[in-house]
Amino acid sequence: MSEVSGQSKLLLTRQLKELTKRPVEGFSAGLVDDNNIYEWEIMILGPHDTLYEGGFFRALMTFPHDYPLMPPKLKFTTAMYHPNVYPNGEVCISILHPPGEDKYGYEKASERWSPVHTVETILISVISMLSSPNDESPANIEAAKELRENYPSFKKKVQRLARRSAEEM
């Protein structure tokens, strides 16, 4: 085991213990398999006063072995319709993009991944994303277009998904 990998395991173990001891409102986190600290199951509660309210959205957070130098990936396993979530469920927000300059010039380096982020700060950002979609740089172009051009239809789809996710609990 490399030194970086060993440090990432210690850091992830510490973050998991902290979240277990002091849960944060809006989500829960745990390991998919007790023998793999690099894959977490996440449950995000649809934030109050949003179209996602009442929903229970499952996701997988997969950490690279060089975490926290590089960001984890977060992918919803529950159906999700959102401008900043690819149709395959993968979340697209700036803090989950690799550190450094954006080759397309859309994001500042300061908006991208930094080792100061924790599971808690990532998930708070995802909850914020659910509350305030960014349709300027969409991962799901169809959802962004529908949000802008046919909000009633977008709202209906999202609320249906939220209800369905609650029924599947």
Rank of each mutant, 00 (worst) to 15 (best):
T50H: 13
S125Y: 02
T121I: 05
N134V: 06
W113L: 13
F154A: 12
L130V: 07
L123Q: 02
T118C: 09
I93G: 08
E142S: 11
A139I: 08
T62E: 01
K73T: 11
H97N: 13
L51W: 10
D135G: 02
W113K: 10
H97D: 06
E107W: 14
A59Q: 03
I124R: 11
M80V: 14
T77S: 06
S137D: 13
P83K: 05
I141F: 10
E149V: 10
S125G: 12
F56A: 12
E101I: 03
Y52A: 14
S110L: 09
M129T: 09
P138I: 03
L51H: 09
T77N: 05
M129H: 02
G89R: 04
L60M: 02
E107Y: 12
A144Q: 10
G100Q: 02
E142H: 11
N84G: 12
Y81C: 03
V116Y: 09
W113F: 08
S131D: 06
E111I: 04
L74V: 15
A109Y: 06
Y151I: 11
G105H: 02
V85R: 01
H48D: 15
S153A: 15
T121K: 00
P138R: 00
W40M: 04
P83S: 11
Y67H: 10
L130N: 13
G100T: 10
E136M: 14
P138N: 04
D102F: 04
R148N: 15
R148F: 10
T62H: 00
P133E: 11
P152M: 02
T62W: 06
H48P: 15
N140E: 12
D102W: 07
E41L: 13
D66N: 14
E101Y: 08
C92Y: 01
T62S: 03
T77C: 00
S137R: 06
Y52R: 11
G105K: 07
K103Y: 13
P133C: 08
V91G: 11
E111P: 04
G54S: 03
P83G: 10
I127A: 15
N84F: 02
K145R: 12
S128Q: 15
F56Q: 15
W40L: 11
H117W: 05
R148G: 08
G46T: 03
E142T: 15
D66R: 05
W113D: 09
S153Y: 03
I122M: 02
E120G: 04
T118D: 05
P64A: 01
A79S: 10
T62G: 00
P72T: 04
E146Y: 01
N150L: 04
Y86K: 02
V85M: 05
P68V: 04
P98T: 11
S153M: 13
I124H: 09
L74F: 05
T62L: 01
K75M: 09
N134S: 06
L123R: 02
P72K: 03
A59F: 01
M43K: 09
V119S: 07
L130I: 14
I124T: 08
G54M: 05
T121P: 03
S94M: 01
P47A: 07
A79N: 08
D66E: 10
S137K: 02
P99E: 13
S110T: 12
T78L: 04
